[in-house]
């Protein structure tokens, strides 16, 4: 039992480590893709904590990423840069700046607090109602951040935020998200929540409050999403449009493609889709594959990624991993291979 648990934590961490290792070996331009993929891992793991364990769909998590990015971005921008980008900022926010690590902690706290406010009423819903209501949250957050210039840059882009999310920070961030998600899943709360996912009536019958368990997961995953948003704003200049329709869809698709009900699936999905996406983005600028020049027209990338997602969802609706954690049984074929090698 303990070995299985160790595998469930170490396998995703191992993937994050491999991605980080690849990042150190490649050119600086390719490294950006790796960093981006690692931040995606953090976002998708945040989604997994709620969606995977509760079985309730949420489109709203990118709102928590967005408020996290806003909190970290607004406060970590150097004070002298603020008036140019955010002329209408409230004075409290305008006159203070905080460092990198505090800004990430703040992003997580703001994400969790916002998730609590949203979750208190919304966790009563499930099914399609939950899907549409969380979509509404996304719309409202997008709309408010876009026009309310007292708390942020409005339509402007978060330029001049210190770009501290390098390979190291992204790897640590992704690993941290994985560890928190693992610890939650193993805890009493995680077990109770997945019990409600499997059979809500039976869980209620033994005294589990579905509402309370969902709320706990929602707040935790909101915190993780806010944290990922902090990582994101320190990676590249973000604006409201970059956190609107594409990212929610992409990250949700990553989760479902990997297999929503396992941490392993979340990490595999995030890295697989990010990998395909970055490869195609490179191919649009022209690369060589096995000695053959490959130069795709601009825009091919989104078409192929879209088709890839649709295909996986149609052919393997439980995701690439089937929604299961990695187990020793699945590793057994590998052992046979190593025997042959000897």
């Amino acid at each position: 039992m303990r070995r299985t648990a160790a595998l469930q934590l170490l396998a995703p961490l191992f993937l994050v480590g491999v991605a980080a290792l690849i990042g150190t070996l490649v050119s600086t331009s390719t490294e950006t893709y790796v960093i981006n993929a690692l931040v995606n891992v953090a976002i998708v793991v945040a989604l997994y904590v709620f969606i995977g364990n509760s079985g309730v769909l949420s489109f709203g998590h990118i709102s928590f990423v967005a408020v996290g990015a806003w909190a970290a971005g607004v406060l970590s921008m150097p004070v002298q840069e603020k008036p140019a980008i955010m002329p209408h900022l409230a004075s409290l926010l305008r006159d203070h700046a905080i460092g990198n690590v505090p800004s990430l902690a703040l992003a997580a706290a703001v994400g969790a607090a916002y998730a609590l406010v949203i979750g208190l009423p919304l966790m009563r819903l499930s099914g399609l109602g939950a899907g549409i209501a969380t979509f509404g949250v996304l719309e409202i957050t997008h709309n408010v951040l876009r026009y309310w210039e007292t708390i942020g840059p409005g339509l402007n882009t978060f330029s001049a935020v210190p770009e501290t999310t390098g390979l190291l920070q992204a790897s640590i961030g992704a690993a941290l998200a994985v560890i928190v998600a693992f610890a939650y899943r193993r805890s009493r709360f995680g077990r109770l929540l997945s019990a409600t996912r499997e059979d809500a009536a039976a869980a209620r019958a033994v005294g589990v409050s579905v509402y309370r368990q969902r709320l706990v997961a929602f707040v935790l995953s909101g915190g993780l999403a806010g944290f990922a948003g902090g990582l994101y704003v320190h990676l590249l200049p973000v604006n409201t449009e970059s956190l609107y329709l594409d990212i929610p869809f992409l990250t949700l698709a990553m989760l479902l493609i990997g297999g929503a009900t396992s941490l392993w699936g979340a990490v595999v999905g995030a890295l697989a889709v990010s990998g395909v996406d970055s490869f195609l983005a490179e191919a649009e600028t022209g690369i060589h594959v096995f000695g053959q020049p490959l130069n795709l027209p601009a825009g091919t990338r989104i078409v192929v990624v879209g088709a890839f997602m649709a295909l996986v969802l149609i052919l393997r609706p439980a995701g690439l991993t089937g929604g299961r954690e990695l187990s020793f049984r699945q590793l057994r074929p590998l052992r046979v291979l190593t025997k042959f090698a000897k």
Partner: peptide, 20 residues
């Protein structure tokens, strides 16, 4: 959930084909 996200993917796909 899978159906909704799959049609989401189709929407995304058709939109990017139009863009291309």
């Amino acid at each position: 959930a899978v159906m909704l996200v799959a049609t989401f993917a189709i929407a995304f796909l058709l939109q990017s084909i139009a863009l291309l």
